[in-house]
């Protein structure tokens, strides 16, 4: 059954965010012929409408008012609420991002409905929307249906597939949204994290080290492995245990309380695979585990494994990867 869907779009560096493109792809599949709308807010929004149509939107609710930047929830809630009133969607999709973490629950309570956060699967089952998400630190998955409408869901980055191919040259309807409502929150400062090359969340490959490294010097081999794969492709991560012991910066922590990463390849070195760590990396397309303990939990999630001491495995692995090219 066709149903209308609204995607809350986000812009990054003046373009549609990668997750917005993925959500629009998901929306086209879930709509089953229904209408897909997107909200675009901020000075780059008018220029983002055409890419949003190519990514799957039929209609864009747009305000190019710079007052929507930086994100503050009061004006965003009001704008998205206005779009929802017009579009009457059955489902509202957001990214599990700085914006979506705030806006998803706010919209749910404002509209007297419900939200499911950080979903990894979105589906229509028996004609109704079903959202599936990890819980209990990634130990379990929970599937939800919604007793109220619209259903609201935030989705994890890279959990959904963009339209392939995009609808090149597609056009759609543009609806103007009013300028920003007043915000109770005042943003007084912003610090960008030290730009040390590739961001952990963006890296196609993440090489992480854990407690089994035995000390901070173990991370030198981890860094060499990442460098052998390519500094433009591989970033270095760490388990919470290793961060807690001060072996590596907390900014690189992967896990429930650190970064959630969804790379093509995740190499877990001397990491046992505690559930709170798996919550941060289980979305990887492939996991490689290198661990001395053949019973380590990480091997249950891994596609490829080596049982062995990382000090003996990594030097020849670094050589072998360098020799690939």
């Amino acid at each position: 059954m066709a149903q209308d869907i609204l995607v809350v779009g986000e812009l990054a560096d003046g373009a549609l965010s990668a997750t917005t493109v993925e959500l629009l792809g998901a929306a086209v599949r879930l709509a089953e012929g229904g209408r897909v709308s997107v909200t675009l807010l901020g000075s780059a929004a008018p220029a983002a409408a055409a890419p949003a149509f190519a990514a799957g939107a039929d209609r864009a609710f747009v305000s190019g008012d710079g007052g929507y930047e930086p994100f503050r929830s009061d004006p965003w809630v009001a704008a998205v609420q206005a779009a929802i009133t017009q579009a009457q969607p059955a489902v509202v999709l957001l990214a599990q991002s700085t914006v979506g973490r705030d806006l998803g629950p706010r919209l749910a309570f404002r509209l007297d409905t419900a939200a499911a956060m950080d979903c990894v699967q979105l589906a229509i089952e028996g004609g109704s929307f079903r959202a599936t998400r990890p819980c209990f630190g990634g130990n379990a998955l929970a599937s939800y249906s919604f007793a109220t409408s619209p259903a609201i869901a935030t989705a994890r980055a890279k959990s959904q597939d963009a339209l392939d191919p995009p609808r090149a040259g597609a056009t759609g309807e543009t609806v103007a949204l009013p300028g920003p409502a007043e915000a109770r929150t005042e943003v007084t400062g912003r610090e960008q994290a030290a730009a040390t090359g590739l961001r952990l969340q963006d890296a196609p490959v993440v090489v992480s080290g854990g407690r089994g490294l035995g000390g901070p010097e173990g991370f030198r081999l981890i860094e060499q492995l990442a460098a052998a794969i390519g500094t433009h492709r591989a970033a270095v991560g760490s388990s919470r245990a290793a961060c807690d012991m001060g072996w590596y910066p907390v900014s690189q922590q992967v896990g429930l309380t650190g970064k959630v990463v969804t790379p093509d390849l995740y190499i877990a070195v001397a990491i046992s695979g505690a559930s709170q760590h798996m919550a941060g990396c289980s979305g990887a397309k492939a996991i490689v585990a290198i661990n001395r303990d053949p019973e380590a939990n990480i091997f249950k999630a891994a596609r490829y494994g080596i049982v062995g001491d990382y000090k003996l495995v990594l030097p020849p692995l670094i050589e072998a990867i360098r020799a690939l090219d």
Partner: peptide, 18 residues
């Protein structure tokens, strides 16, 4: 408002290639 339809432990591969 959210109805939990299913709660399950995902089958984690179990097919690690050593």
């Amino acid at each position: 408002r959210l109805k939990l339809e299913r709660l399950f432990v995902p089958v984690a591969g179990g097919d690690c290639e050593f």
